[in-house]
Design a protein around this nucleic acid. Structure first.
Lengths: 217, 217
DNA sequence: TAGATTGTTAATCGATTAACAATC
DNA sequence: TAGATTGTTAATCGATTAACAATC
């Protein structure tokens, strides 16, 4: 029997965690310090039963007859998601999308610090975007090693994505956040999270043309 | 028995369609005119059995002993996804993310035409971003009605998202592509597709800290 | 104590995979 | 015809929901 497989928490559970975390953060900001699975269900749209199941994968955070302590659960989920530390990050592709990510304060607040942008266009190399310099992509590998960069973002055109992924992979980066509409191939140990915007738009388009298949959530 | 429910194609199937479509487009560009479910499996990472099941939800596009005709399947999937026509689109929030979407040729090529950007910042109203004007958000409702806009994008900060969603909803927009980190509430008949970038990043962060749970795909 | 709500097991539901007859 | 590969049914697997004892 494969114990790893037995204990592994399924991806469907993990993808719900950020939403719990977000709503708990909102409750916390409102000064609410207690929440039941039923109330979380009303907020998130997931069933109360599912929420209790999900959370119990990581431990018994609740208390019978009471519910969950908002602050504690928020912090626990933050820890589970790895939001209790910071991550050195670089972005390759300094176009609008790269800049959008670089400038977004929400990521910085969550611990994702963009050290540098990279591009191959000489016209933009050297520019400074709200305090973040654009460097030559030729320097990427060295920069990653020298600065212990852990996360690499790809916001280049599709054609360049695999090349950048190769550099990332060889330079020992731990995870790649890929926005290019391509499925990049990397070494086993590198984690890849894709954001395929076209796919999302096409799903929207599908439902626009097939309303009868559309169910909220 | 609810026939609607019986016939409804599940969201998990629909979310795989854009990937099939993308790889078929690549095969087509390479001049390959025939593909088997086994070959599509190697490309996409889904099982051949699943691919055949998925496609058969929409009709028997294949031929025993032969496989699928690349061009025909590509066109059929495009039709299923609604990519055989164009969509009038507006974007509210003319920051980097809004501009990234407005400028991206891939969406235009797929039929999504950005008519206008909108913003509430007087400093940017009137500017022209690669041929797309930034208008005052006060004109949004009228503009949508006058131009029969079908799709509205939200690339504003979180705080404004619900307000924009309300305007969209009241103006008769058919679908909202939401990038704000909030779950907007709209009328039943409006389709909402969310792109929650933080959630994607947090999942990446989870796997970075829990490698043993990471499985490709 | 009585009421509320969790943690957890069992039941159900749905999605994926396996298998193979049909047939090109 | 022989080989290949689909379309489709049945089997398996996994995820969600229901139920309720435990307990705060």
């Amino acid at each position: 029997m494969d114990l790893d497989k037995e204990n592994r928490i399924s991806i469907t559970v993990i993808r719900r965690l950020p939403k719990y975390h977000r709503y708990l953060g909102e409750l916390l900001k409102k000064g609410i310090n207690r929440v039941s699975s039923k109330e979380l269900s009303d907020l998130t749209g997931f069933t109360a039963s599912q929420i209790r199941q999900d959370l119990n994968n990581f431990g018994g955070f609740g208390q019978q007859g009471y519910g969950y302590n908002v602050e504690e659960l928020y912090n626990q989920l933050g820890k589970i998601l790895g939001l209790d530390r910071t991550y050195k990050t670089v972005i390759v592709g300094s176009g609008n999308l790269g800049q959008a990510i670089s400038n977004y304060n929400g990521f910085k607040e969550a611990g994702f610090e963009v050290l540098s942008l990279f591009d191959k266009n000489p016209k933009v190399i050297g520019l400074n975007i709200r305090g973040v310099e654009i460097r030559d992509v030729d320097e990427l590998a060295d920069y990653i090693k020298e600065n212990d960069v852990e996360i690499g973002v790809i916001t280049t055109p599709r054609e360049c994505a695999q090349d950048i992924a190769d550099i990332y992979s060889k330079s020992g980066i731990k995870a790649i956040w890929n926005f290019a509409p391509a499925d990049i191939k990397v070494d086993e140990e590198v984690i890849v999270e894709n954001v395929h915007l076209s796919e999302s738009l096409f799903v929207l388009s599908y439902f626009l043309n097939n309303r009868e298949d559309y169910v909220k959530n």
